[in-house]
């Protein structure tokens, strides 16, 4: 059964690479933010998967909860600053 989880983990990492492409390439700053959000959602899921493979879900769920909350704070801050900057430039 471990090979199945290895497959899941590898797939999630490859998907993170796809979002990374959007972060690197994305024409506007908002595309980059969206890509970053996609990566962090994957990271949350990935943490729980890692926890399941290690049989220590209790430990890893704590970090993924923290990730989810931090992600909110970071994304709101970024969106707010981008919004201010956009208004300045018009």
């Amino acid at each position: 059964m471990s090979s199945f989880f290895l497959f899941v983990l590898t797939t999630l990492t490859v998907l993170m690479l796809v979002y990374l492409y959007r972060v690197v390439r994305g024409p506007t700053a908002f595309d980059r933010v969206l890509g970053l959000n996609g990566i962090s959602t994957k990271a949350i899921v990935l943490l729980v998967v890692i926890g399941t493979t290690f049989d220590r879900v209790d430990m890893f769920v704590d970090i993924s909860t923290g990730y989810a909350l931090l992600n909110l704070v970071g994304a709101l801050a970024i969106a707010k600053f981008l919004e201010e900057r956009g208004e300045e430039r018009q």
């Binding site: 933010v33 989810a68 909110l72 994304a75 956009g86 208004e87 018009q90």
Partner: peptide
């Protein structure tokens, strides 16, 4: 609860900055 808030904040920032 949180991801819709993030998506909304990002899209609103894009909208308000003229896209």
């Amino acid at each position: 609860l949180l991801n819709p808030v993030i998506a909304h904040a990002t899209v609103r920032a894009a909208y308000r900055s003229g896209l």
